[in-house]
Write a protein that binds this DNA or RNA. Structure first.
Lengths: 335, 335
DNA sequence: CTGTTAGCGCTTTCAG
DNA sequence: CTGAAAGCGCTAACAG
């Protein structure tokens, strides 16, 4: 039993246009008429048909979040904070949220749902930085906001946390403690974040005229396991680093695990800095010094930008770069 | 520029019905005709309008996942595995996924989107077990699957992991090691999972004719902090437990943190068992003995059940109860 | 195998 | 302030 405006109209003794006006909160309806209609709607428990509205208004009131496929994702905590941040804003609006994954390897067809008019706009998370498809979206003036991935030279809305600055800060801190042999365990370098964090590390070294020591760069993949392996590897070098910057907390915790298994004291023998400030960072032993990122805020901001893009008022694209923050705990000390 | 079948039809020199048939993969179209149409579609880069299809077919091909609001959620890892599990199955189908949160406190209006025909079915995660709304959904024969929350005496599809059995197993293990004073740190008892895990603990005690020691039950809320507080509390009792079952790993890790801060040896002085087997469980020190849950599979199964419910063939509701598994690591030993 | 007709439930436009 | 008519883009039902 699918009710339509017609049923409501009949019951209330008005035309379907009046019903439509009431539903859409139009001004020009006599209060008593509005009442009648509202009552009829309540009695019948009528709900407007979303498909029909979408068809006539040419708007679905659905947004899409595109997230890289699970295997590419750095941490469940990052993921869930981001999603909840986006959802919170969308939930308070007239929109709904379609959740979708894509494979960063393939040339993703981000716009498929948009072109079917199934969604009105996109939040694209962590696209490859050389992604031509993004440029196409821009050319077709499809409303979208990037999270965690910029495209050079294009006036595109994005929200990001400054990974280069964060990594720079981490290494700076180790340097200021007195460390001169600083290693890094990188994330999966296919992901921009990993490249930027490596960049921050290298930037600092070159600023201080450090020799860039190839050996001290270990290529991890965000996983605890790769942190474990990376630590063992670096510490067993003939000239091992006295401090290690891990590109995420998961790898830092993997490294700490390796240290425990090897009988290497943290921070006495080796200092460790992580990245992300996941909740568990302050519960491991020793508590992990790390870089905090306002992920929840990234999600909220992205949703707000997109909503504004769709609001009707002409709106220029905006670039928002949030700043990460060093959280000093107990996993570092002077060499 | 919104193209319609009419444009394609004109270009291909056929009727719109033929275009429709090609799009829907109907059998009865001459190969050459099909070719012509396909070519026209390609040349114009035409996409069918989802709203129009939804309107005529009376199906949106969208599913909705309803998840308790962030604050009620036990862990980001649980959340993200579940979502990715669901998404994986949905992604391989013709459907899309709308992601939504609800407040378990309020009498949630789960069916709003369904009634607007914006979605075809629901996956409802962790509804309150006394939730009357669920019964209503069932009476209105709205297609839905419950995850992690059953309603007694109703023929409803659900997928769950047996929390009572899992907790029972955990306590059994501690008992078999020789522990006779076993405490528990519970989760937020507003959530069924927490109640079931407490139930499993109590079931075991009563089976062994243990006195149920009120003192040894600490009411936590899933957070690391509450694990920390709970441990301190229990260990400072005049007659402290020699082993503690924590209702999730986060609290177990909080407890281990407290132990470290208090100088209490784990497992020498106190044994600890967790629940969930989050990835970090095997990276803390000592590695955490815990109960593993196949969450990804829960998500996939739920999606599969819902899809089958919508498949057209009459399908009886199914109850799937997956079994958790004890993972023995290093956080327990004989007293 | 292909086309014609009607209508899904709504909103836009124009009349009153 | 209210209503009548037309049409959004598609598919079901029937003809041929």
């Amino acid at each position: 039993m699918m009710l339509s405006q017609a049923d409501v109209a009949r019951r209330a003794g008005v035309s379907i246009m009046t019903v439509s006006r009431v539903i859409n909160g139009a001004e020009n309806v006599r209060p008593e008429t509005r009442e009648k209609v509202l009552r009829a709607i309540g009695e019948l428990s009528y709900y407007p048909n979303a498909a029909a509205r979408a068809l006539t208004r040419n708007r679905s009131y659905v947004l899409e979040v595109l997230i890289p496929h699970e295997d590419y994702f750095f941490s469940s905590e990052y993921f869930s904070e981001l999603i909840f941040g986006i959802e919170k804003v969308v939930h308070d609006s007239d929109y709904n949220l379609i959740f979708n994954t894509y494979d960063p390897g393939q040339g993703a067809e981000y716009a498929a749902l948009y072109k079917q008019r199934k969604v009105d706009g996109l939040v694209i998370v962590a696209p490859a930085s050389n992604d031509r498809t993004i440029v196409k979206l821009h050319e077709e003036s499809i409303p979208f906001v990037l999270v965690n991935g910029q495209v050079d030279d294009l006036e595109i809305s994005f929200v990001d946390v400054d990974n280069v600055a964060g990594a720079f800060q981490a290494v700076q801190y180790l340097y200021d403690l007195g460390h001169r042999r600083i290693g890094i365990i990188t994330g999966n370098l296919l992901v921009v974040n990993a490249r930027h964090r490596l960049q921050g590390y290298l930037d600092f070294l070159s600023e201080k005229d450090f020799p860039e020591v190839e050996q001290w760069i270990f290529h991890g993949n965000w996983s605890e396991d790769s942190g474990y392996t990376g630590f063992s590897h670096l510490v067993n070098l003939k000239d091992p680093p006295s401090a290690i910057f891990c590109s995420n907390d998961l790898m830092a915790i993997g490294a700490m695990r390796a240290a425990a298994d090897m009988g290497v004291g943290i921070p006495e023998a080796v200092s460790i800095v992580g990245y992300d400030d996941i909740r568990l960072a302050s519960f491991v032993n020793p508590r992990l010094t790390t870089i905090h990122q306002p992920i929840h805020r990234v999600g909220k901001t992205a949703a707000e930008l997109l909503l504004r893009l769709l609001s009707g008022q002409p709106e220029r694209p905006r670039q928002v770069m949030l700043q990460p923050q060093l959280i000093v705990r107990k996993s570092c000390e002077a060499p």
